[in-house]
């Protein structure tokens, strides 16, 4: 479904990614692990078109999206919930959700997506007319995910959804991620520093280190790998 081939990205003279390749089939949850500065966010930003790569190709559903502008990539069904949530703090929750449906002519589908978002995050419905900036960190994360779901994605990329959120809410959000994957059939690429949690819910994992793929495999196998246990699971 999503194929990345030999991706190379540089910020000026700094190489952020070199020769990154992976393929994510439809339907599952795949996680991308890596320590600070490994290039996880850069990978997602490049896939969603915010950063233009120096080399390599990105295919989504067989279409070459490497040079497409971000809004066209979203239209193709690939949504990115960015690190730090980036909700529109100056807009209401309702407007945030409404902007998630930019250029979506199908009002019935919009209504259905909205109902679905409220069903998994009832908190958002309660806070509908509040400015997004007044929400707690966890609620903002729900809004960021909800906003992405309004765009009717078939593929969702989540960048550190647990960052800066109370442990209890992290649990809720991860349950919802599983539910979105299983009930809506949305494929998920999850970036996490909380490796243990991410490996629990994913079937497959890639490990990024200093801009290249160090290793990958089934999550259970990586969990057992002594090198990774030392580096990412703190064991």
């Amino acid at each position: 479904m999503l194929t990345v081939e030999n991706l190379a990205v540089a910020y000026g003279a700094i190489n952020a990614l070199q020769d990154v390749s992976f393929a994510i089939p439809r339907g599952g949850i795949v996680t991308l692990l890596g320590s600070n500065g490994a290039g996880k966010t850069t990978t997602l930003r490049t896939i969603s078109g915010l950063v233009k790569p120096r080399g390599g190709k990105i295919f989504f559903d067989g279409e070459d999206i490497t040079r497409l502008p971000p809004h066209r990539i979203v239209q193709a069904g690939l949504c990115h919930v960015p690190e730090g949530r980036m909700v529109f703090t100056n807009l209401t929750v309702a407007d945030n959700l409404r902007l998630g449906t930019w250029r979506q002519p199908d009002t019935a589908r919009t209504a259905a997506n909205r109902d679905y978002v409220f069903s998994i995050f009832p908190r958002l419905q309660e806070r509908l007319h509040q400015l997004a900036g007044t929400l707690s960190g966890g609620e903002q994360q729900m809004l960021a995910i909800g906003r992405a779901l309004m765009g009717n994605p078939s593929f969702l990329m989540l960048d550190e959804p647990s960052l800066g959120i109370a442990p209890k809410l992290v649990q809720t959000i991860f349950e919802k991620i599983i539910e979105i994957n299983q009930r809506r059939g949305i494929t998920i690429l999850l970036v996490e520093q909380n490796a243990s949690l991410a490996l629990d819910i994913s079937s497959h994992a890639y490990v990024l280190e200093s801009g290249h793929i160090l290793t990958h495999g089934p999550s259970t196998a990586l969990r057992a790998d002594p090198r990774l246990r030392a580096a990412y699971l703190g064991e």
Binding site: P69, H71, C79, F88, L99, G100, W102, R147
Partner: peptide
């Protein structure tokens, strides 16, 4: 209006606007 909300969104954070599918141009 929706375009008005989009203007405010772009003004706050153009990248976030791009990521929800807004044609910023």
């Amino acid at each position: 209006t929706k375009i008005g909300a989009a203007m405010r969104a772009v003004s706050l954070n153009p990248d976030a606007a791009r990521l929800v599918g807004i044609n910023v141009n």
